[in-house]
Amino acid sequence: MLSDFSAIDWFPLWLSLRVACLATAISLAVGLTLAYVLANRRFRGRNLVEAAVTLPIVLPPTVLGFYLLIVLGRNSPLGGAYETLFGVPLVFTWQAAVVAACLHSIPLLIRAARAAFESVDHTFENAARSLGATEWRVFWKVSLPLARRSIVAAGVFAFARALGDFGVTMMIAGNIPGSTQTMAVAIYDAVQSGQTRVANVLVIVMSALALTILWVMNQAGERQAR
């Protein structure tokens, strides 16, 4: 078993962690903003926005991946713009894996954060407004701190989800060892090519990682509840 550990290429693990960290950061920025708006504002088209952000949770990954290929592909305006800006195409790079991970993390985060913002007693927010606070200050100093526990949990979930994305990643980042091969993809690859021992180790590592994340989250939750 030990020899297996040393023989295995650990690039997929580091890539997965890097992709998950970036995807979580992006999800927090996008997700918290949208969640706050959905929780606090009534506007036309709100239902449509809600449906749109929930869609990735229910659509098959292959369908999502296909859409992304169309939207972000080299011949698309968005893909073209990216390529002009950074000099390289977006699809089939590790950055595309980040996009893929975000696609599932953002909806999860929005749902959890929205519930968290809605559970904040609006009296506190109104109190802040009556004390002269701008909406920006209300968000940073009142809503966010009061919802922090659920937001942290939502962030951890988003991270865990980003860590394990498979379908969409395969579709738009592909399976290029040493470049776009994340843990989930590497496990699939190992099983397909009959490298059972490699698959075993990678599966154990992923499971241990997921368990650790959940354990740390529960510990943090208990500490706060006390």
Binding site: N126, A128, S130, G132
Partner: peptide
């Protein structure tokens, strides 16, 4: 609300708990 110059005292004190 922030530009109305009205102080507001709520039913429950509404002091920020954090």
């Amino acid at each position: 609300a922030r530009r109305r110059g009205c102080g507001y005292v709520f039913q429950k004190d509404a002091l920020f708990p954090h």
